[in-house]
């Protein structure tokens, strides 16, 4: 008779794992990745491969150097690399993509303790860093067959309303993975079905942007064009819902979504940048600990008397 294992209950597990969740996020991003490649051509492939490869390699090297247990097997570095790539224009110089990815992984994620410990979302922060550091980020790429000269948000700012169907399908200028709302929605449904995220945050975020824009602009088509443009769907579905940097409770998610929506519209309509999604999420990331403290679940039966 061998020795019996002794452990505290439960002795049964759901089978969910960090690796499984991260892999689901990667799968959910594949439609947007495919759409980006179809729209922007081969250069998009190089950006995606560069970012993913750099992300995994830099995390592995960091862990090796500081003699920490290797964590790249959890697929979270792949998620960060892929998300950052989808946030970049297809014509970005690859060396810039490498620097941005190293910044996201090493400085934003690993320096703070790795997975589960980062204070802000690595991919978003990497993008904001590149936006400030490299001028090429402002020069948007356009689909191979496109004749447009400006991104939809720039057009909207100048008073032109782009075709809604083209926006939905993604036939417009922008980052690799942000333009096709259709592809992003497929990913959203996948994440909901797999119970990786809940609907609260993305729906409230996008809904707030829609209502706020409509209230200011007073036109349904313009408001719709605003939510279908830029990085809103990519940000709201895939970046704002990052576990570590967003609230755990439904109430917290609603506040986060509301705040991110308001900041996004403020920047878009009155700010210096045409797009405000990254800044909005980054700011809400910083407020997240406070939101979590304000929105606890009620403990059943109250406090012990």
């Amino acid at each position: 008779m061998g020795k019996l294992h002794i452990s505290v209950s439960p002795h049964l597990h759901s089978g969910r794992s960090t690796q499984g969740i991260m892999r689901d996020v990667v799968f959910s991003l594949l439609p947007a990745t495919a759409a980006g490649i179809a729209l922007f051509g081969l250069s998009a492939v190089w950006v995606v491969l560069t970012c993913v490869f750099t992300a995994v390699l830099s995390e592995a090297l960091f862990n090796f150097i500081i003699k920490k247990e290797q964590t790249v097997g959890d697929w979270s570095a792949v998620v960060t690399g892929l998300l950052l790539a989808l946030n970049l224009p297809a014509n970005i110089p690859l060396w810039q993509a490498v620097i941005g990815t190293v910044f996201a992984i090493v400085i934003v994620k690993c320096f703070f303790g790795g997975i589960g410990c980062n204070v802000v979302n690595p991919a978003i922060t990497g993008r904001v860093f590149m936006l400030i550091a490299f001028g090429s980020m402002a020069q948007a790429a356009f689909p191979v067959d496109s004749t447009a000269a400006a991104t939809p948000l720039v057009q909207l700012g100048e008073g032109t309303v782009p075709d809604l169907l083209e926006l939905f399908l993604g036939k417009c200028g922008g980052s690799i993975g942000e333009t096709s709302v259709l592809a992003l929605l497929i990913g959203f449904i996948y994440l909901l079905v797999r119970k990786v995220i809940s609907w609260h945050l993305p729906v409230v975020y996008i809904g707030t942007v829609f209502l706020f824009t409509f209230a200011v602009q007073g036109d349904l088509t313009v408001a719709l064009a605003y939510i279908l443009s830029g990085g809103l769907f990519l940000g709201a579905i895939f970046m704002a819902t990052d576990y570590v940097t967003s609230p755990a409770t439904p109430a917290g998610k609603l506040i986060f979504g509301l705040g991110a929506g308001i900041i996004t519209v403020l920047i878009r309509l009155w700010g210096n940048y045409p797009e405000g999604v990254s800044f909005a999420i980054l700011l809400m990331n910083i407020l997240n600990p406070y939101i979590e403290a304000w929105t606890p679940r009620k403990v059943f039966g109250g406090k012990k008397a």
Binding site: R16, T71, G116
Partner: peptide, 12 residues
């Protein structure tokens, strides 16, 4: 056992 990813599943 791996690092907590703050997914909130335990809480929810």
């Amino acid at each position: 056992e791996t690092a907590c990813i703050r997914c909130g599943a335990c809480y929810n």
